[in-house]
């Protein structure tokens, strides 16, 4: 019985779809059934999306309001592009697997893990890194005032996640901060100061320009 089920399942996999599941698509889609290999598709005529790489290709990034034209392999992450190609080292490489938050930057205002975004994919988006913040930004000042940092390696990522959070939650409580910053990890144990800092900075940021 199990044997049989497995057989059916793999048949289905091989053909891509099973008869039963097949639903006739729209005219345009139904017509587009040419089966091509990856190499053939790579040579697709104009009109189809252009395939680039694997070698370096032009990549234009808008970081902190500045336009940067780079040549990068498609596999270069946004984090590596920032750090290794633009020398913007505020975002840190720690886990490099989208877990710790040390590489947090803002993409169109929303915090993301730069280690898990391809640079080529970040084109056309507004990228903000910690370097965009003036050193007297209320969030940075609050982190210092409440000593929400020790070794400091997680801190820029926390600050960026906190800035995005505070812009949305000016009246936040420490409990809200705990929920809003659950995508970042600190090893030194600075959470007590961070909780206080973000609550305070969120209120200050509301009235401030460029916050």
């Amino acid at each position: 019985m199990a044997e049989k089920q497995r057989g059916r399942a793999s048949d289905r996999l091989r053909s891509g779809i099973s008869r039963r599941d097949f639903l006739r698509g729209s005219g345009a889609l139904a017509a587009a059934t040419a089966l091509r290999t990856a190499t053939e598709a790579a040579a697709a005529p104009a009109g189809a999306a252009s395939v680039v790489g694997p070698g370096p290709v032009p990549v234009t990034l808008t970081v902190n309001g500045q336009t940067h034209r780079l040549k990068l392999e498609p596999r270069v992450t946004l984090l590596d592009a920032l750090r290794n190609h633009l020398d913007l080292t505020g975002a840190k490489k720690v886990c490099d697997r989208g877990t710790c938050g040390a590489c947090t930057v803002l993409l169109d205002g929303a915090p993301v893990y730069a280690c898990s975004v391809l640079a080529i994919d970040a084109q056309g988006h507004k990228i903000e890194t910690v370097e965009a913040l003036s050193p007297d930004h209320p969030m940075i000042q609050a982190f210092v005032d409440h000593d929400g940092l020790q070794c400091g390696f997680c801190t820029p990522g926390f600050v960026m996640a906190a800035v995005a959070f505070a812009r949305q939650n000016p009246e936040c409580s420490e409990e809200d901060v705990c929920r809003g910053l659950s995508g970042n990890i600190c090893r030194c144990g600075t959470y007590v100061g961070i909780r206080e800092a973000v609550v305070e900075a969120a209120r200050k940021m509301r009235g401030a320009a460029n916050a």
């Binding site: 587009a32 040419a34 089966l35 697709a44 999306a49 680039v52 790489g53 694997p54 596999r75």
Partner: peptide, 28 residues
């Protein structure tokens, strides 16, 4: 590993860009 990259604007294009084997391509 290095890879090719494409960013199609329609589903149809996207499907055409995918290869027949798992090692050929992946949807991002």
């Amino acid at each position: 590993n290095a890879f090719e990259y494409a960013s199609p604007q329609t589903v149809q294009e996207a499907v055409e860009l995918l290869g027949p084997g798992w090692q050929d391509s992946a949807v991002l």
